[in-house]
Design a protein around this nucleic acid. Structure first.
Lengths: 188, 188
DNA sequence: TCTGATAATGTCAGTCACTGACATACATAG
DNA sequence: CTATGTATGTCAGTGACTGACATTATCAGA
């Protein structure tokens, strides 16, 4: 019964990712993940709320960074400018997690249940950004609209960065927000 | 054993909504929903993939309407303009479902598992719109960005319309897309 | 009206995600 | 070396969901 504390969480995540890749998410039982990590099924569920959550550990680490970045933006910045800086601030974290994130994305993309959770996480972060924009004085509905639009631009950037990491995320963020502005300019 | 065909689906949806409201989603079993509708648990799962899906029956009806509306937009329309017309085209359907939709939203909003499904549905419709925009010649990434931004504007409109239905959805859609343009104009 | 094909429902057994309760092993302060 | 808190193991249980098979309703045609 190892007591490696946080190391166990990492082993569980690694085991889950491997098994999901080897035989698929549906064909993997929680007990199998736990066994590969050297613990019991019960212990698995003490560390992760469910079988999906084990692949989304980055989310709680993203939150404080985004919160701080929004708060740190210069007073008077336009909402989308604030969001641009917020997204730019998480590049180091995404960079570090890349080795784990890459195979993870493939599994998520091919598993409806995991895509659903990914969408929920994205929506949750969007709501967080909206709240932080409100804290800066942006009216509620406008804040939510801005957060969603900004998240759309981020998605654009992240996908590009994922396909070609030779350039920094920041560059793609500029393109993403530019593309958003372009779309809006060409009219509704 | 009634054989009302489609009527049963409606009874199951109604029963589920009632029970979710009375005692909450988690505290309601699939067997209870089925019993209230006069059938077996097994039959419930033959009509709906899971306990969540029973509240999201509108989704398959929305798809063909949106698809047709995007295809029907005038050639050369800007992406966001196409989406504006697409969203405007579903107003009648939303209008008809209002009596069912209103209590439904409240249950969804207060239940994480249902919010998650709702986000997934929204994402799925967004993907559909992106595909249809591509069919009109919009490049893939730009199409996805536009679809997400447009969906953000729709969310803005739908929320307002829900709070105050005395004006048509179309009016709120105009405001939503205007607000989006305003945000983009004020810059990133 | 009867009959056979078709589709919907019922029945039953089984797997697995997830949870609560309680026992046990580990770690560390003192 | 011991007390104490915390992580883990064990066990039993609930409920979502599925596959297989039996049964019943519907309806077209003889």
């Amino acid at each position: 019964m190892p007591r490696n504390k946080d190391a166990l969480r990492g082993r569980l995540q690694q085991a889950a990712l491997e098994l999901y890749r080897e035989r698929g998410y549906e064909q993997t039982t929680a007990a199998e993940i736990a066994a590969r990590a050297g613990v019991t099924e019960r212990t698995f569920f003490r560390h992760f709320a469910d079988k999906r959550e084990v692949l989304f550990d980055e989310d709680p680490r993203l939150r404080p960074i985004l919160t701080a970045a929004v708060a740190a933006a210069p007073a008077g910045s336009a909402p989308l400018a604030v969001l641009f800086h917020a997204f730019a601030s998480i590049e180091p974290l995404l960079q570090d997690n890349r080795a784990f994130t890459e195979p993870r994305q493939a599994v998520i993309a091919s598993t409806p249940a995991l895509r659903e959770r990914a969408e929920a996480k994205s929506a949750s972060l969007t709501a967080l950004l909206a709240v932080e924009l409100q804290r800066r004085g942006v009216p509620e509905k406008q804040a939510l609209l801005a957060a969603r639009a900004g998240m759309a631009a981020f998605g654009h950037a992240a996908q590009s960065w994922f396909e070609n990491p030779s350039v920094g995320l920041r560059v793609y963020l500029e393109r993403g927000f530019d593309a958003l502005g372009e779309l809006a300019r060409r009219g509704s």
